[in-house]
Every structure is written in C-alpha cells, then in structure tokens.
Design a protein around this nucleic acid. Sequence first.
DNA 1: CGCCAGATTGAGGTCAGTCAACTACAGTGG
DNA 2: CCACTGTAGTTGACTGACCTCAATCTGGCG
Lengths: 235, 235
Amino acid sequence: MNQLVALTEAERDALAELEKRERHHRRGAVIQRANEPGNDLFILRAGMMMSYVLLDNGSRQILRFHFPGDMVGMPGILYSEAPETLCVLSDCVICPFDRSALAELIEIHPRLAALILVVSQIERVALTDRLAMLGRVSAKSRVGALLLELRDRMRATDKSVTDSFTLGLTQEEIGDATGLTSVHVNRMLRQLEEEGLIERDNGRVTIRNDAALARAANYVNRYEGLDLGWLPDAR
Amino acid sequence: MNQLVALTEAERDALAELEKRERHHRRGAVIQRANEPGNDLFILRAGMMMSYVLLDNGSRQILRFHFPGDMVGMPGILYSEAPETLCVLSDCVICPFDRSALAELIEIHPRLAALILVVSQIERVALTDRLAMLGRVSAKSRVGALLLELRDRMRATDKSVTDSFTLGLTQEEIGDATGLTSVHVNRMLRQLEEEGLIERDNGRVTIRNDAALARAANYVNRYEGLDLGWLPDAR
DNA sequence: CGCCAGATTGAGGTCAGTCAACTACAGTGG
DNA sequence: CCACTGTAGTTGACTGACCTCAATCTGGCG
C-alpha cells in the first residue's frame, strides 16, 4: 500500500505491527482450507500463493494469484467457514494476524482503512476482468492475458522483471486459472509461440508482442491509472 | 448494512445523509459509462441495475446485478476512467453522492468503514463463485445457479418472494451474465423445465427443485453464514 | 538406472455457437 | 380498427472450439 500513497510514520508502524510474526512455507502447503474456519489474515511477504475452489464435479477453479505485499485471507474472516482454499505456489514467507487486529487498524487509521478498501476494489476489478475473459474470450487470448497479468504483477514487486520471467506454474495450473484443460493450454502456448507473440524456454516465458496480446484479450493493468486524491487525511 | 448489524442512531444518520438526493431512471438508462470518468457513488434505493463490460470482439459480459440497498459504482471512483458500465434494468431510484462523502464516512464511523469492507468482500466471494461457474460448470447449471442467485437477492429485500419471481431479464441478458448465447439459454431453460426443476410462465419463474439446482451448480447464498463478531465498536 | 511428474502430440467426441427461419406480442401511426 | 414495426422468444441444421482419452517424450532425482 506504500506504493499507492506516501504513508506517515504512524501508518507505517501500524502496518509493521501486522507483520510482527512470520512463518515460512514450502510449495504445496495449504494455509487455509475451504469449508473450515479461517479467522486469520496474512500478509504475504515473499513468494507466490493462490486461492482456489474445488467443485463437486471434481474440477478446480483458481480464483487469484497472490504476490508479495498482498493481504490474503480476507474472504475467510467474514464467514464461519472459509469460502476458498489458500495454497503456496513457491516457497514463501507469510505474516499471520488476527482479524481483531484489522478491526483495530480500521478504527485508528481511517486512511489505511480506505486504502484496504481501495486494494479490495482493485482486486474486484481484476476479478471482473477475469470473469469477462472466462465468459467471452477465446482460449488463446485467455492464456495470453494470464501471462501478461503474471508479468505485470511480478514486475510490481521485482523491478528486474521486464518481459521475461519464470512462470512457476504447471500447465494444469494455468488451465485451472483460465477454465481450460492442461492439454489445451499446451496447444495454446504452442500457437502463441508459433505466432511470435511469446517465447518459451524451460518454464521461462518471454513476452514478444505485448500490445498484440493485450489487444486480443482486452487486458488492462489494474494497478495503473488510479486516482486516489479523495482519500481521507492520514492520522 | 442494517441487515448485517444493528446500527446506532449516529450511524443510521450518517448513512441517511448519503441518501439525501435522489434520482429516478427508466429501464435502459446508463448511469455510468466504461472508460469515462465516474467520480460518483450511488445507493440503489429501488429497482434493479447491472454492471457490464463490452469487449473488443463485440460481446458483452454482465458482471453483477444490483438490488435495493446496494452501494454501486465503487470500482469507478478508484480510476480516472470507470472500468465498467452501470445500467438500469427496471425503473429505479438511486441516490448519488460524492466520493469525498465516502472518505468522510470512513473517517468518522470506523464500524461503517468495516461494514463497507465486509460488503465489498461478500461481493468478491459472489464474483469468485461466478468465476468458478464460468470456468468449470455446464451451461445448464450456470443458468440454474443464476436463477437461484436472483431469487435469493430479491428475497433479501422483498420477503414476499418465495420460490416464484419475475425475472425482469431477457434471455440475451441471462446469456451475457452466464457466458452463453441467448439461443442456448433458451434451450437450457427448456431443459430445466422439462426436468421439473423450474416452471415458467411469461417471464415469471418458479423454482421447483431448489436443492437439485444448488447442488448441480455449487450454489451458496453468500449473504448467509456470516460471522461479524470481530467488527470494531460503533462510534 | 528406474521412477515420476509434467509436457507434448494425435484421434475422435461433444457441448455450445452460428445461422436462419418462424412465432408471439406490444407499440405506433394511419 | 388494422397494417406495420420491432423486440423477444423458439426451434432446427450445421459447425467448430475445446474436451477426453491415450500414447509418448522429457528432465529431475533418489
């Protein structure tokens, strides 16, 4: 959130307080399971996570990928049973805190409360973008848009990422995020490569034609173009 | 929000303040257009609205239906250009207010700030449910789940709605919400009817087998099962 | 070396889309 | 009162994007 707005010292301290404890997890670890109580929130400090749901028909839908700086687990604190599963994709450091700490933060720091609301709305817009993709966009464009989104979100925390990055996902995971089968993801990646839009080398992807990919998939980076002049004053 | 928690007098007054002005609109009216500035928020007091996006390929994805009591237009105030279009489905009354009024509310009433965050997270979960539907569920179940969702949301404001209600949507709109064509929506409605799960009569739908529909589509009413004991104290 | 998860490729099937015709009905104007 | 118009719903024939199943290939690792 310090990328969105210049924080005051008191605000920085309050956020640091949430990250007092930290835990380390390996790829595959399940942090929170759907349909079980989930009263904790987490700040993801390093690594990559995802949230997903399993349906009765046996399939999985990945809802969202999480990157360093994200607050994860919010949907879980509303309900007596968490609506989604939280799972570690690459070895990561997470800082758990109780939901009462969130309540306290909102009470003491109205501008941070507003910023949390803003972040949750950015996430909402990113989710509706994905909704439109799944409903109305071809398989090839969906895969392309996912690559762009991952690239942009990695770049947000690691400036060294330009157009080339390590996916860190299996093709099955890409499929579960885009509503496709791993077999079809494979074919779409191949086609994108044949058309010169991307290059691949052993799990590493290079975006070759950013503009064409973005156009085909209606992709917009939702962490840009923000207008936050209306936020309440810091305390 | 007064359905989620018993509000104090000061809180009720603050919310009433947002509804000071009111406007009336007819079906079809566009309240906010995507890619144009949208600095206002709205409380929907009566009627039904929807938000959607239009893609380059000419198709439309309906993102969300809005019902009385909803705060609409939040995604628009974050960005210099609104990410989605807001449109009236049935003649409605909306109360516009400036985003600075939201900032003020957050500053003065921390518990209302938390409640707004809660409502936006409920919406997030409803969106991820729909994401899973579009990605992983058959056409027939998607249509069934949409009917259940509309029924539950109408019932939330109008207790007289039990299992029978007037849709107020064209089959094309149902298709744009579920990622289908109107032709296929028609066939799926027919099938649901033939299987005895629903009945139809001139735009009026009766749910005949609630449980079977919910099971097939993994439908959960996200306005139930909440746990809000952790909210900050009212001021 | 053998094992295993993940990636790749082919053949064939199916669900949902496209195109097109037709019906039903409300609104409009003469 | 009725012809005309436009929107929404219905139905059939055909097509195609994506899925399923199955075989093969690859690289990492004990």
